[in-house]
Design a protein around this nucleic acid. Sequence first.
DNA 1: GAGTGGTCTAGACCACCGT
DNA 2: CGGTGGTCTAGACCACTCC
Lengths: 237, 237
Amino acid sequence: MSRTTLVEQVRDELLHELSTGKLVPGDKLPNEDALADRFDVSRATVREAVRVLVESGYVSRVHGSGTYVTRVPRREHALDASLSYTRMIAAAGAEPGVRILDARFCTAPADIAERLVSGSESLEVLRVERVRTADDRPVVYSVDQIPRAFVPDVELDRIEPSLHAMLAAHGHTVRQATARLLPVVADTRLARILRVRRGAPLQHIDQTDVDATGRPAMVSAEWHVPDVFELRINRRA
Amino acid sequence: MSRTTLVEQVRDELLHELSTGKLVPGDKLPNEDALADRFDVSRATVREAVRVLVESGYVSRVHGSGTYVTRVPRREHALDASLSYTRMIAAAGAEPGVRILDARFCTAPADIAERLVSGSESLEVLRVERVRTADDRPVVYSVDQIPRAFVPDVELDRIEPSLHAMLAAHGHTVRQATARLLPVVADTRLARILRVRRGAPLQHIDQTDVDATGRPAMVSAEWHVPDVFELRINRRA
DNA sequence: GAGTGGTCTAGACCACCGT
DNA sequence: CGGTGGTCTAGACCACTCC
């Protein structure tokens, strides 16, 4: 019972050679048979290990030619690679904070209910309004809504700072989300909450989180102050 | 031999069942042995096909439990899944168009040069200013810069509508890009080009495209008019 | 404990790249 | 053409989930 898999061992060894400069951008990796020999594993195992590196953007395969080291390290905290703003703010070198403005149970508006359940029934949700801060500066204002049935025993005055952690504790780990991006300008209310000028550009993100079994678990509306921490995404052809 | 691989056949059949509603979010896929039986392929082939669906965000695997449908392939052209705006505009049901405002060779500004080459040398680039349209409405204004050495024989009055196609023809297929998202408000010039009001919110995207060997091949600055076609991204934990 | 996905092997042949 | 990555098989055993 190895605690680390063979794939992980091969991947880590290759990663080590990348980070110590033994392999540099432009270098060609040994071919897959050679790597299989060297690590004493099957070629399938090598391919799986290299696949992880390809997906991370460290190497690139060229059919018929070889596998090459690229100089594109993975952006660890791009929008498409992370769901945690807390971690993204921390990665940007700032002190993350969360302030809860309001938490209540209520009936979801029809459009929200439609996104959370298939039918158009009336739906009780936990609704949380928060402001995230970076070094005490407001950076994100968000309104999150979760079906009450997903978090039945939650007490309003004991809301966890991480709603994803709360959902996970109730068996609804969020693994992916679909987000709609929209630039907007701050109205009076948003300007006050986020401490920007009225008319200042804000990044609006309208998102639906989905749990591991594919059920919508949370709908979030967010307004981000640009430049405090950068929003990035990795794109693929 | 077969023009389509077994993996592709299995993937396409599963995708078909997703898009025709035979499988809907929350549904559990048959287990991998059953799928292998049904398609008369090995389990490894099924796993490879499902792996593609997992990466596309359509299904989610839960170890020891099953594979579940998480999303139906409605919006195939999310920002993180496509690099082609032409295709994204077409997918939104509009007629895509491109108008070249300006094309010239020039010396790249220091910050652009830095992103295209490691050293801080002076760099000759092909610089193209374009406006993309959807049903003749301006939707994206972009300034793209490509190292001249990457496209040595290009004639300025014969710029292809797709710069990615042009790069690919010169052996620099773009596989990956990193994009920075920034909401901005239209200044007088952008307002005129994109036919919006001054002060209207615009989505600014600042992007670096990378070729198969990891070399930066193009830097793009884009300004998108919101609401003409939606910008979406799929996010993963 | 039954059922599921996760890892792994040792082969085989094919498709593509460059010389 | 030789060398490379791409596809595929038929098994085996392990780790996890849920009843």
